[in-house]
Design a protein around this nucleic acid. Structure first.
Lengths: 341, 341
DNA sequence: CTGAAAGCGCTAACAA
DNA sequence: TTGTTAGCGCTTTCAG
């Protein structure tokens, strides 16, 4: 592999000159430039990025830490990152996390090695220790889909989202509204918790009682959701509507309804969250969040942070959610009076 | 940021010793090691990866070039890559390609910079020029889902897949079988073309005539597929079955059937390809291919290539496909005699 | 406008 | 077992 030295010798100039040509520095004579360019061509030379990085103290690489790409929403956010980063000279390195230990390991490594120019953390809250380390080592960092008082972040108002979902059902006259999520207390994103809070807030503001028997949390995925829904729907005084914390789960609820011969939306209303592609197909009412946008915005924030070496208070952006009404929700079948008793 | 020199000074040893400690070289006295470890701790030292890379001439990074993550199948393959790479000390850098120019640009850069230790190219055939450059520069490279006589690759037998799909319908007694794909001649994967060949081969072997009016190609995506299907199904003597080159398109066909009040599978059989998650939900018969597996195998091949510096003839692995029968295919409604005329 | 040389931080060969 | 030193390939003063 030819080096800058080889090129210099071939073109009969100093390495400094070659470097200037490569880096489009204008202070080089046209004739000299031509000679150098010729030598580069002859030798099939191309600069060694690692050496340049060492010399410049910059990697042009951004670490993206995100949960294993099991959920469409992660993929969509990642696409946003790629879209934004694609317009720059940076490249993303993917650290796909399968479990909390791995997450901590990556975070630990990345927050002190001079390995990347910045960190993009997706859908995982940081511990105070982790935050402190990042701050101490001055690693430019942005969180997407997680909140943090000391670091820049992009969030989506999940409380409002959960509330919006429940409110939609309340507006349709439902009184017995169930809530179905995966484990509310996971090491990863806290969005489930927030949506739950939103759900409760909506009930409260509408003066409806909260019933813990109408809440189910468990494994993620469609089938687990289906099982939980079967359980939920087979109790006495079953709910007439279900808020699911993601569309996949909502589809699981649809499965359950079918098994129980419940018509949707006549007998049961179901609302999901995320507006993934599948949702349109099954005509699921859902809460849509700007997933792609969150990736884009987060990346831009990070690039800005890297460039400007800002040292100002952390910025927090909250992206809007939206109700997408489709065929899985309808007015409540029969009004019971629980809410007013 | 502390460097190895700082640590050496702090621990009152030479940098060589510190290096030995870091790299777990055993030839270092326990007491010395302890001193060094202490200094590392005190100084919050962590080695500069870029410097190590330059010194070692190795990056521990693998470039993954793949089409923009629009299709679930890409994501699944990528997950395979991550899974396999996760067990090693390497990390993937994503080069997500949106168009042919970008593909060529990335390929060009990556095949001559000393930027990564290996190249994983997904779902894109390489030109001879590109292949030659890779070979010339001795960049360890593996293709996944694309064939190449000179480079290691993992493929799935798409001809057999297309044939299997069509054969399944033929076995069910269908005679008028349509084929629906996105543009057969794209710069990206050639799988569509191969599936098309398989389709034709099945017809031929069954003695059924090929009708170009039963073939539609166009934009990708569900809606485009729906439009094409509407067109296809509204001609005189419409097909009783459709082979779609991917599940997304097959779902588009289902949309069209619904619009035309055709029952699936009673009036129309539909078979897809890929067995994406959605397919189970809509009970789509499809051809399943080992997507995750392809990513894993390809990555392993590459790592092997990097380690061993092999210089043997290119290896080619062909992964098996499988028919997954679900509810979208059934015996032909009425047997016409076109096949035997 | 250009050449020489001093780093960037680390590894590894060579002495001691 | 350890310290010293010569690279790794590039950028960037600093003279000229």
């Amino acid at each position: 592999m030819a080096t800058i030295k080889d090129v210099a010798r071939e073109a009969q100039v100093g390495v400094g000159t070659v470097s200037r040509v490569i880096n489009h520095s204008n202070a080089v004579h046209p004739d000299t430039r031509k000679k150098v360019l010729q030598a580069i061509e002859d030798l099939h030379y191309s600069p060694n990025l690692t050496a340049r990085r060492l010399s410049l103290g910059k990697t042009w690489q951004i670490a993206v830490i995100l949960p294993y790409l099991t959920m469409p929403s992660y993929v969509e956010r990642l696409r946003g990152v790629q879209q934004a980063i694609g317009e720059t000279e940076y490249y993303p390195i993917l650290y796909s996390v399968g479990n909390p230990d791995q997450r901590d390991e990556y975070l630990d490594i990345l927050s002190d090695q001079t390995q990347v120019d910045g960190l993009l953390v997706m859908s995982m809250p940081l511990s105070t220790a982790q935050t402190k380390k990042i701050l101490h080592n001055q690693v430019p960092t942005v969180l997407i889909d997680a909140s943090n008082p000391e670091l820049d972040h992009i969030i989506i108002d999940d409380i409002a989202g959960g509330q919006l979902a429940a409110q939609h059902l309340i507006d349709l006259g439902h009184r017995r509204i169930a809530f179905l999520s995966d484990n509310l207390d996971t090491p990863f994103q806290e969005s489930g918790r927030d949506r739950y809070l939103g759900y409760r807030r909506a009930l409260k503001e509408a003066g409806l009682p909260f019933r813990s028997r109408r809440v189910r949390e468990g494994d993620k995925g469609r089938q687990a959701a289906c099982r939980m829904a079967l359980d939920l729907l087979s109790q006495p005084e079953p709910p007439t509507a279900v808020v699911a914390t993601c569309d996949t789960k909502a589809i699981g609820v649809l499965d359950a309804a079918r098994q129980l011969n419940l018509r949707v939306p006549e007998d049961l209303s179901v609302i999901g969250y995320d507006n993934i592609r599948d949702s349109e197909y099954v005509s699921l009412t859902t809460i849509s969040q700007p997933l792609l946008e969150s990736g884009i915005r987060g990346t831009r924030l990070l690039l800005d942070l890297i460039d400007k070496k800002r040292d100002v208070p952390p910025r927090s952006y909250q992206l809007p959610i939206e109700l997408v009404t489709r065929g899985s929700t309808a007015p409540a079948p029969n009004q019971d009076q629980e809410g007013t008793k």
